[in-house]
Nucleic acid binder design. Sequence first.
DNA 1: TAGTATATTGATAATCATTTTCAAAAGATC
DNA 2: GATCTTTTGAAAATGATTATCAATATACTA
Lengths: 149, 149
Amino acid sequence: MFEPREEFHRFIKQKGLKVTRQRDLIVDTFFSINAHASVEELYDEIRKREPGIGFATVYRTLKLLKESGLAREWNFGDGHARYEHVTDADEHHDHLICVDCGAIEEFENEDIERLQEQVAAQHGFQLTHHTMELYGRCRKCSRIQRNGR
Amino acid sequence: MFEPREEFHRFIKQKGLKVTRQRDLIVDTFFSINAHASVEELYDEIRKREPGIGFATVYRTLKLLKESGLAREWNFGDGHARYEHVTDADEHHDHLICVDCGAIEEFENEDIERLQEQVAAQHGFQLTHHTMELYGRCRKCSRIQRNGR
DNA sequence: TAGTATATTGATAATCATTTTCAAAAGATC
DNA sequence: GATCTTTTGAAAATGATTATCAATATACTA
């Protein structure tokens, strides 16, 4: 089983930093909510559990989560960074994003990855990473649109 | 031949707006410099030609260029929007970006596009658009790295 | 081509997400 | 428990972009 809080403690101690009540709360909350939450969404949920927490602390802890490899940051163009849980160091995936409801789905496609490597090679690039976001209307929102609702 | 300034005038008039010296200068400069300039880069070049121009005017004109379809805005994750020339309404391409020198190259790949449609369909999405950025080291920067320079 | 209505400009203030600062409080080590 | 750091929360700062506003320029009309 994957224990984010323990992994985080390992990281924190290895860096000579301190385990705090606030950090634990933020990490626990982060992993308990939707995998692509914005800072605001995360902050709101955290305040429900403990109203006194400052948002600077949330930003600071998210930075540590990124550094530790437990979170990955994405920007899908709405000006709000979103953070995703990383539970397996090797996993890689891209995103489908609904332009109506904002739903985010993940996908992996080996063939596309291969073609991307090919394109890069043709241009003399050595790839380090990539982003691919497919925007459109999700199943639910297409249905609603079709039914005129 | 493609005449950006004329196209822009058509757009401006059709919207009941006014042709101005500043707008002309901005449009001309935009099309005379590199195809993925940031606002700052564009603004610097404009000020060389006419120092008095305010950056608000540059932002405003870029918005009009977008609306008119003559420019496309991209965000490659460095917090500076970049603007690309659109000279053909139908063209579509994605980007290769050098993580060392920032060089940006464009590419098109039909096979990837097809697979993206396929992925979307599998997830019940009707695609509207997408972004794909391949980050890596360009030919020149790979060479420099290999040679230890 | 002057008169007038309206849009535009440049300077500056405002936004908005995120970061930094700093004094008070808390965690770790002995 | 004493002490040395680190952390926290509040508030100010930042950096890119947008809005405000009074002065000016453009376009239309006569």
